[in-house]
C-alpha cells in the first residue's frame, strides 16, 4: 500500500488542479467541465452507462475469447510447423499496421451494425499480442529440459504439456493483459463507427449534444473497466503461477 502512495497523491493532485482550472474559468467550463461536474454526470447517467457497458463488455468478451482461441491455435501451429511460422508470422505483423479506424467502417459495411463487426475488430487487435506472447513463450522453453524429457522417451504432446505450455504462461498473461485493454477500446471504436448501442454509441451521442461532462464520465468509466479487467487477469495469473512467489516463501 505504502508504495502506491505516490501514485495516489499524484492523481489527487491532478484532480485538484483540474477542478481549479475549471472553477477559476481559466478554461471555460463547457469545454472542460471540472471533476465534480463529471462525477455528477456520471451519477445522473448511471443507468444508461450501465446498460451500454453491458453491451460493450459482451462484445469485448466474445472478441477476447475468440482472440484467445485463435491465438492459441495459431501459436501452436506455428510452433509445431516451422513452415507455417515462416509463412504467416509476417502476415501477422502486417495486420498490426492496419489502422483500426480505417478498417472498422469496412467491417460495418461487410457485417452490418450488429455485434459481428465489433467482435471481428477485437479479434484482429487482440490476436496479435496473444499469438506473439505464446509463440515466444513456446520458443524460449528450456531446450535442455526438452532434451531431458526426450531422453525419457517423451512424445511431442508430452513435451508440449509438461514444458512448452507452462513455460509460455507468463508471456501469455502479458499478452492477455494487453489484449484485454485492447478489447474494450476496440469495442468502443467499433461502436463509435457504426452501431445502435454500447459505450461508443453513447459517446457519439453526448458529443453531438456537446455534453462534455458526460463525455469525461464515459472516458473514466472505460478506463476503470480496463483497469478492473487487467487486475482480474493479474489475479488469475497469480493463481495459476504460484511458483513465481516461491522465492518469497523460502
Amino acid at each position: 500500500m505504502r508504495n502506491k502512495l505516490p501514485a495516489v497523491a499524484a492523481i489527487v493532485g491532478l484532480l485538484l488542479l483540474w477542478q481549479l482550472v475549471s472553477v477559476t474559468g481559466l478554461v471555460p467550463s463547457f469545454m472542460l467541465p471540472g471533476p465534480i461536474k463529471v462525477v455528477r454526470a456520471f451519477i445522473s447517467d448511471f443507468p444508461l452507462l450501465l446498460e451500454n457497458s453491458a453491451v460493450t463488455l459482451t462484445e469485448a468478451f466474445y472478441g477476447l475469447a475468440l482472440g484467445v482461441l485463435l491465438g492459441f491455435i495459431s501459436a501452436v501451429l506455428m510452433d509445431a510447423f516451422p513452415l507455417v511460422r515462416r509463412a504467416f508470422y509476417p502476415i501477422l505483423v502486417i495486420t498490426q499496421t492496419i489502422p483500426t479506424v480505417a478498417i472498422a467502417p469496412l467491417l460495418v459495411l461487410w457485417f452490418g451494425y450488429e455485434i459481428t463487426p465489433k467482435v471481428v475488430l477485437i479479434v484482429l487487435t487482440t490476436f496479435f499480442p496473444l499469438t506473439v506472447g505464446l509463440c515466444d513463450g513456446f520458443r524460449e522453453a528450456d531446450t535442455d529440459a526438452i532434451d531431458l524429457l526426450k531422453s525419457m522417451g517423451a512424445s511431442r504432446t508430452q513435451i508440449f504439456r509438461y514444458i512448452k505450455l507452462p513455460s509460455a504462461l507468463p508471456q501469455f498473461f502479458s499478452g492477455l493483459r494487453i489484449a484485454a485493454a485492447y478489447s474494450v477500446v476496440g469495442a468502443v471504436i467499433a461502436e463509435w463507427l457504426g452501431g445502435f448501442s454500447g459505450l461508443g454509441v453513447y459517446m457519439t451521442r453526448v458529443r453531438s449534444a456537446y455534453a462534455f461532462d458526460k463525455m469525461f464520465a464515459v472516458i473514466i468509466l472505460i478506463s476503470a473497466i480496463s483497469l478492473v479487467l487487467m487486475g482480474a487477469i493479474g489475479l488469475l495469473e497469480r493463481e495459476l503461477t504460484p511458483y513465481r512467489r516461491a522465492r518469497e516463501q523460502k
Partner: peptide, 18 residues
Amino acid sequence: SPGRISYMLQKDMLLPYR
C-alpha cells in the same frame, strides 16, 4: 533410441513450475 537411459547434469533442470 532415447527413452532407455536418463541423465543428470550440472544444471538440475527441475521445472520451476512443478
